[in-house]
């Protein structure tokens, strides 16, 4: 890798401008500005209730959130005008903070359906069950899973850690351009955290980007972010390099909240 200063900056993948969003009439996001370029990893940190998850869900298209102002461009296109499935097909992926269980549907069937929906969209031939399993083998190994997880219903009866790993498996299999990880690190033991971080790190390429939404800096010791943002009161109140994360861990969020009120 070339040094950071010399590296050519990638093209803009995501551009968020003055984004306001509310849920059940309550405004959560109050003017978010964020630019993510290809090849970058951004960390979005902030206290509980600051709007981190809302931002992640709005970008993925959660129907419960209403965008009241602002715009979001993804590869130059209006992201907010796209249905959730259209965003996924164009390469946006959200690892859910609370992954959803689906009764009766095996993980293998679910993953293959998702992969094939995207392949079909791209005009690539869909994968049969056998080809798909072959393609999956390596990705399973990367997250330290055996194929028994594939025959279990999606997230049903999974522990918290298993659910998070399952999100990372989906990330690895779907290979998105823009991955948003919503507190994927919370609730993981140190080994699971390392596995998740390594998998994410391995997927880093000059043509994709990752937005890590997190409460703690733990995961950032394994995945080095290019930019750290602090979200408070529905706005990004501070952005900086990776050293900002450490500062937050030491000083907490209170000093920023005061700052946000002042500005």
């Amino acid at each position: 890798m070339t040094g950071k200063g010399k590296r050519e900056r990638g093209k803009v993948l995501l551009e968020v401008r003055d984004l306001h969003a509310s849920v059940e009439g309550r405004e959560i996001l109050r003017g978010i500005d964020l630019t993510v370029r290809a090849g970058e990893v951004h960390a979005i940190m902030g206290p509980n209730g600051s709007g981190k998850s809302t931002l992640a869900q709005v970008l993925a298209g959660h129907p419960a959130y209403t965008v009241t102002a602002g715009r979001v461009l993804y590869e130059g296109h209006d992201l907010l005008g796209m249905a959730p499935e259209a965003r996924a097909r164009e390469g946006v992926f959200l690892a859910f903070q609370y992954p959803v269980a689906i009764r009766g549907i095996t993980n293998a069937y679910f993953l293959r359906s998702a992969v094939n929906a995207i392949r079909k969209h791209k005009g690539v031939e869909e994968l049969g069950p056998v080809e798909f399993m072959d393609a999956l083998e390596e990705k399973l190994k990367a997250i330290g899973w055996d194929s028994s997880y594939l025959s279990r219903p999606v997230n049903e009866g999974f522990s918290g850690g298993e659910k998070k790993r399952n999100e990372i498996l989906q990330l690895a299999v779907l290979d998105p351009k823009l991955a948003i990880l919503d507190e994927t690190d919370s609730g993981l033991d140190i080994d699971a955290l390392k596995t998740v971080a390594q998998t994410v790190d391995k997927l880093r390429r000059p043509d994709n980007a990752t937005v890590l939404v997190t409460h703690y800096d733990r995961i950032l010791t394994h995945i080095e972010p290019d930019v750290v943002h602090v979200l408070a009161g529905g706005r990004i109140v501070k952005s900086g390099g990776k050293e900002l994360a450490r500062e937050l861990e030491e000083k907490g969020y209170d000093w920023l909240r005061e700052e946000a009120v002042v500005t």
Binding site: A60, G61, H62, P63, A83, P84, E85, R87, A88, R89, F93, L94, F96, P99, V100, I102, F110, S113, A114, A117, I118, H121, Q170, L174
Partner: peptide, 9 residues
């Protein structure tokens, strides 16, 4: 929504 966020109609 979960399934749609994975690309399914």
């Amino acid at each position: 929504y979960y399934l749609r966020s994975r690309g399914l109609t």
